[in-house]
């Protein structure tokens, strides 16, 4: 299958830092696949994701988007760790934010918002203000906003790390359902190995300083996945070894 994005020999140094945070990093993400990126804190997971989002410019290496640009869609859309909703916009208007510069008409835009609301189960909250939402609901709106632009790849930066454990499980299950009903690939950054194994087709481990890909593991488990299955635990144990956690 074709790849949606290819990182080739990427390097990046934070402004003011004397050593690069990532160097010579290469990674290939298949169209429609779900990739989780894990690694210790400060290893450069978020930097890689932000490079993919176009928010930081790598100083070396190449980033190739291999799918053709299609009208009315974006190649990439990001879901932030904080939901980052605009407080002066209702849920509807927040979801429409990325659509406003896509050159699509009002009817199409409304249809996209409705579809994203439905996918994320937010229909009843569509006219609320962000301050009226719980953390989990706000995060769903963030996901809906990204889905509305029908991206080739959905970039998610620890999106569930700020919600409680119960909500987190629920959002993980729903994310799989949402992803399966779209054709988007997902690049999901997390520090939670359990979450990575539950969600992803492949788990990429970043390690070393400067960071490179130290492990790229296919998760061959049927969905929906059983967190209590011994195979699940085996994957978690294997990956934990890379991160030095027990």
């Amino acid at each position: 299958m074709a790849s949606v994005i290819e990182f080739d020999g990427l390097a990046y140094t934070h402004p003011g830092a004397d050593a690069p945070v990532i160097q010579d990093l290469s990674l290939d993400i298949e169209a429609g696949s779900f990739i989780a990126v894990v690694g210790g804190s400060g290893v450069g997971k978020s930097t890689l994701l932000r490079a993919a989002a176009g928010l930081v410019t790598p100083e070396a290496g190449e980033m190739r988007f291999n799918l053709p640009q299609r009208p009315g869609r974006r190649r990439r859309a990001i879901v932030f760790q904080d939901s980052r909703l605009l407080p002066w916009r209702t849920v509807d208007e927040n979801i429409a934010y990325g659509l406003e510069t896509l050159g699509i008409d009002k009817a199409e835009s409304a249809a996209r918002v409705a579809e994203a609301l439905q996918l994320t189960g937010l229909e009843e909250l569509h006219d609320r203000w962000p301050h009226q939402l719980s953390g989990g609901q706000a995060q769903r709106v963030g996901i809906a906003r990204a889905l509305a632009v029908k991206p080739d790849i959905l970039l998610m930066d620890e999106p569930f790390s700020a919600v409680d454990a119960m909500t987190r499980r629920k959002l993980q299950t729903e994310l799989i359902r949402i992803w399966q009903s779209t054709q988007s690939a997902v690049m999901f950054v997390t520090h939670d190995i359990d979450e990575a194994v539950y969600l992803a087709d492949r788990v990429v481990v970043l390690g070393n300083r400067p960071a490179t890909v130290v492990e790229n593991l296919q998760i061959d488990l049927p969905r929906p996945r059983d967190r209590n299955a011994p195979e699940f635990a085996a994957y978690v144990t294997h990956l934990s070894a890379w991160l030095g956690v027990e």
């Binding site: 989002a53 176009g54 928010l55 974006r74 859309a77 990001i78 932030f80 904080d82 980052r84 605009l86 934010y97 990325g98 406003e100 510069t101 896509l102 906003r145 632009v149």
Partner: peptide
């Protein structure tokens, strides 16, 4: 972070960003 959001969703230009 709001400006970062604007850039991510195609509203990063001066006027777009100012208005949105």
């Amino acid at each position: 972070r709001f400006y970062e959001l604007a850039r991510s969703f195609g509203q990063g230009g001066y006027w777009r960003r100012s208005v949105s």
